[in-house]
Design a protein around this nucleic acid. Structure first.
Lengths: 252, 252
DNA sequence: TCCTCAATTTAGTCGGACTTATTCCGGTAC
DNA sequence: GTACCGGAATAAGTCCGACTAAATTGAGGA
């Protein structure tokens, strides 16, 4: 359920700024508009500080109603990308105000050319958070957590990362791990990190066949957590993230 | 700049579920509606899985136009709190899908009775992220970063945490520190953590006069970063967060 | 020179009509 | 009896056009 990511649509070619009517496509209209504006902003086509065309004009240019356009802008506002005031118009906010951890913003960031620096930053964040999370998980996991992780691992072993099922199992493993920390703030991060991971993984795959089997590393992490060995879990997770970074770096 | 928090409200008195027209107040209407619905959801008044009243009915009950109401719902959708489909209505999503790191969601979470468990989780996250950030900052800070941090520290020393100016300076210090890591992902976290910190700090103050002078701890962190001593910076930050947690725990 | 106020512009709100996507239910065939 | 198919019923989604409110800007006056 909840395949909420949709970056496909018929538009990445989207050359013509005007007349984009994703009519036949599936997605809701305002979602398409938000995606359109969101990618433009995140990719830098519309730079921070710039103000975008007025509602009436822009809505007409995109051939959508003003209501739909406004609702899309509200979404961007909610994610900290823009701010609008009467008479002043709608301006793109400085990057520092963007909610970069929002899964959808992440998706927009990766829908075009991924910024290699940002990918590095993301892995650095993983390197900070995930080992610490593994440590906490080792200390607090209960029977149910272990079961979920084992199941995910089994699925991962069966399929590979080249298949969607495999990547999904990978995400499940990391989600289960974060849940095992019994820390809601970390669980909240899991959505963002998970999104980031799946995007970078996608690029890793694109470049070449996966250069390394990631399962053994995952098993080391799992064993340490199941055994309750906090230090070993943290260490194993650290190497896992490091290797993933290396693989990704090679393919970019 | 960037006093991006505005959750003050002017409405928390809003007792009557109906007829809440914060007319004279400052905030935009849809913001008030989003705040109203958002707090209800985050506080559990409307539980996950429940579906809220239909647009037409609810909009009329709140005495606002359907457009304003819908735009508010789009905001909630963007933050992962609800999901709506034709005929099915608008349902509250499970907590796992909420963007808890969104500053505004955090504000809603703290606008009522703060969940002590969640506060603990938040501090645990700080304890993971901030020391690591301090370490990176010590390795990468440039002249400009150091200057910003020193300035914030000076302001902090002048005012106390009891004043708004002091709290603002505190936030500036932490922001400058995160920026000094030159890692955009960490900077993004800073907005969330910063928001959380300012909420908890508020509660700390509410309970009693601040029990400890936090400036010396901040100075230790600053000195270590300025000196480029990564280990010392991480250690100093760790104790700073621990002490802050202790203070907060006492006051709850 | 600075302040005040009004004009202008642009987002914000309103309301009401119409469309589209689901769900739900009942009928039909297997 | 069950499973599949199709037709309402319903609630969100989109569209339109008018009006309101808030800022900015610039002109006029102290």
């Amino acid at each position: 359920m909840a395949g909420d990511d949709q970056a496909e649509d018929a538009d990445e070619a989207g050359v013509q700024p005007i007349t984009r009517t994703p009519k036949g496509s599936g997605r809701r209209l305002r979602g398409a508009i938000a995606h359109y504006l969101g990618t433009q902003i995140v990719s830098g086509t519309i730079a921070p500080g710039e103000k975008l065309t007025g509602e009436v004009a822009n809505a007409e240019a995109l051939d959508v109603s003003r209501s739909a356009y406004r609702e899309a802008v509200q979404v961007l506002t909610a994610k900290g990308l823009v701010e609008s005031r009467p008479k002043a118009g709608t301006r793109v906010l400085p990057r520092a105000r963007w909610n970069m951890l929002d899964p959808q913003v992440l998706a927009w960031a990766f829908s075009g050319e991924p910024d290699t620096d940002f990918v590095r930053d993301l892995f650095e964040l993983r390197a900070v958070v995930e080992p610490a999370a593994a440590r906490l998980a080792a200390e607090r996991r209960d029977r149910d957590d272990v079961k979920k992780m084992r199941d995910a691992l089994t699925k991962m072993r069966r399929h590979t990362l080249a298949t969607e099922a495999g990547r999904s199992a990978d995400r499940d493993f990391h989600d289960a791990l974060l849940e095992a920390t019994h820390n809601n703030a970390l669980v909240a991060l899991s959505a963002s990190i998970g999104a980031a991971v799946s995007w970078t993984t996608k690029y890793k795959q694109r470049a070449r066949a996966l250069p390394r089997d990631p399962v053994p590393d995952h098993i080391k992490v799992f064993d340490a957590i199941a055994a309750g060995d906090a230090d070993a879990a943290a260490a194993a997770m650290r190497t896992l993230v490091d290797l993933a970074l290396e693989d990704t770096r090679l393919s970019m």
